[in-house]
Design a protein around this nucleic acid. Structure first.
Lengths: 193, 193
DNA sequence: AGTGTTTGCCAACAACTGTTGGCAACGGGC
DNA sequence: GCCCGTTGCCAACAGTTGTTGGCAAACACT
């Protein structure tokens, strides 16, 4: 949404914009959409609440900007077909241990229709597209992607949102070992009768 | 929480209490904790908002009453060991297609710490207890239960909350067929090295 | 220097939130 | 009949929310 064309020199307010975005992601991730107030976000960013409105228009606009997210899925065609599940779990775990945007999106998606829509878009577009790259029956692609999403999001939900003790205490590598075969079967397994 | 002892005749207000609880579950399930306002719940139940306070003390008290939930897990010792996964998925799907309490709890758990705590309790207590019934290594029981919870809650999250199209469109029976082997492995599979 | 734009803060708004106290109507027990 | 607890509604409170308009300082450019 930055209206910069070509070699527009950076605006002086870009730092403020970035600070707001960073604070917004933190708050949305920690509190969800409705409990994360503009005032609290502005306080974290050490600016006035009205600046948030000027730069992002509304709370929804701020969230839309803060929840911009790319799964950065690797090219699955260059992965040995038998290790697809393993690669995917490992990627997802790494992806959101290091970036709270997806946690923010996950929390907000439970109560905010716009966030749910965004989540649907991310998984329907990016994940389904990645699954589609290694051929197989196109009619099944969406379903396979959906099943993968269910396990991946369930993992995130129990580990980062609800914080179920056994899911929090287990190391990423052990989680990968347990969950990889599941994704592998959802991706390449033969469908039930 | 009903203070009735022995043969206390039913109070005249029991109908109102029940109406409030029913409306509360609906609203919490549809909107989450913070967007479900007491005023809206009272309107649905066709009574005054102040009645909600009188009968349930506070919004938190109302939620605590509305989110009372029993998984009603069947006795797993009488299930053929090879069909544990199948029985579990089928049970869970049936359990919350017919009762919106768990959807309410799921939505609220994303933003409300109390709801998350309640969710942790339900799965840590009821599910772990059920998993523990068929022996095996006690040290692994919690982890197995956690993994099962991750797939079960991921299924519910994608189907009822985010409403991912492929997960909504797939029939319960087909979901059972896909997901049962996953739970089966989490429950009885050999742990990774 | 002088002008116009950008960046920021302050104060306030209207709406909505959970929550409270008082008061009328109704009920059963004596 | 009378009386007391229950059930219900109304009006209002205090606080918080997203959002807005105006005004001062800082800046960029001639």
């Amino acid at each position: 949404m930055t209206p910069s064309a070509q070699t527009t020199q950076p605006r002086r307010s870009d730092a403020t914009r970035a600070a707001i975005l960073r604070a917004a992601r933190e708050r949305f991730a920690a509190d969800g959409y409705e409990r994360a107030t503009i005032r609290a976000i502005a306080a974290d960013a050490q600016i006035d609440p009205s600046m948030v409105m000027r730069y992002y228009g509304s709370k929804e606009g701020l969230f839309a900007a803060a929840a911009e997210f790319d799964l950065r899925l690797p090219d699955l065609t260059s992965v040995p077909p038998g290790r697809l599940g393993e690669v995917l779990v490992r990627h997802f775990l790494a992806r959101w241990e290091g970036d709270e945007t997806l946690v923010a999106l996950l929390r907000a998606a439970s109560t905010n229709p716009g966030a749910a829509e965004r989540m649907r878009g991310i998984f329907a577009d990016q994940l389904t597209a990645a699954v589609a790259t290694f051929g197989s029956d196109p009619a099944l692609t969406a379903r396979r992607a959906g099943l993968v999403a269910s396990q991946i999001l369930g993992l995130a939900f129990t580990r980062y949102i609800v914080r179920l003790p056994p899911m929090v205490d287990t190391s990423p590598e052990e989680l990968v070992a347990w969950v990889a075969p599941t994704l592998q079967r959802y991706l390449t397994g033969t469908p039930p009768s």
